[in-house]
Design a protein around this nucleic acid. Structure first.
Length: 255
DNA sequence: TAGGCCATCTGGTCCT
DNA sequence: AGGACCAGATGGCCTA
């Protein structure tokens, strides 16, 4: 290889590296956008990539469950759905983030009676200190309990909007907050059952029955007939080998 | 110190 | 040829 060819090769490699960096930054930006529309978003305590993907999968599943059943998710069950497959720290984070007390407050109105965002079911700046959980490192946590779009509420018979969607999403994200849903269509968002179909792992938070008051997630199946996996979260979390994000994506969507 | 997570570099493969 | 995508390797940072 002549010196000139070597230099050309080096230059090409440098350019390819730069492109790869840019590509990965784009991927990370997309992940950040995904984090922002998750039910548990914190700028300071970022979910890892793999946990973000898992939580997103659960969130989509939970929302499609709401659409399908037309039932308001019961608080504990909702948390359980979101926590399926997450690591214990993340599960604790989500649980602590979403549990407001013994009574489900999932449908509590946003405290800021903003005419624009009045429709969003969310609780902002919620600091939760659970007696059974470690001190929350997340601190100032912005929580979206159910950041549902009007069509979701319409399906629940609780819609009060027109066709205009209130923009309650975080600024940088310009895409839709909810996946394209086709209720009458030929496809279903949800697979046949729950995200934990594959029994390679199964996790149902296993806590004392006084779960909520003790800051734990009580294992109440969200959906009647949902198999009860009486497995502690920490026992069921499988540590995945260190793969690239592509592999992680594959892992998440085949789970 | 080990393990988890991440960014980056790199070479391979596929496509235009 | 060059770009996009992917996965393996590597090293840094952080935390338990």
């Amino acid at each position: 290889m002549t010196k000139a060819r070597l230099e050309r090769f080096r230059a090409r490699r440098v350019k390819a590296n730069a492109r790869e960096r840019t590509r990965m930054h784009g991927l990370n930006d997309a992940l950040d956008n995904l984090r922002r529309v998750m039910p548990c978003y914190s700028k300071t305590q970022k979910l890892s990539k793999i946990e973000t993907l898992r939580l997103a999968r659960n969130y989509i599943w939970a929302l499609s469950e709401v659409l399908e059943t037309g039932q308001t998710p019961e608080g504990k069950g909702f948390v359980e759905m979101l926590c399926k497959g997450l690591s214990q720290p993340t599960s604790n984070l989500v649980a602590g983030c979403l549990q407001l007390g013994p009574q489900s407050v999932l449908l509590e109105k946003h405290e800021d009676k903003s005419p624009i965002c009045d429709s969003a079911i969310s609780v902002h700046n919620f600091n939760y200190q659970s007696p059974g959980l470690p001190s929350p490192p997340y601190g100032h946590m912005e929580t979206h309990l159910l950041h549902l779009k009007p069509q979701v509420f319409k399906s629940l018979g609780e819609s009060s909007f027109g066709s205009h969607l209130p923009d309650c999403s975080t600024p940088p994200y310009e895409g839709p907050l909810t996946p394209p849903l086709s209720i009458s269509g030929n496809f279903s968002l949800k697979q046949d059952g729950s995200p934990d179909l594959e029994k390679s792992y199964s996790f149902m938070p296993h806590y004392p029955s006084s779960s909520l008051s003790s800051g734990h997630v009580h294992s109440t199946p969200f959906q009647a007939g949902t198999p009860h996996y009486d497995v502690p979260i920490d026992m069921s979390y499988d540590s995945y080998p260190h793969h690239g994000i592509g592999t992680q994506l594959n892992t998440v969507f085949t789970e």
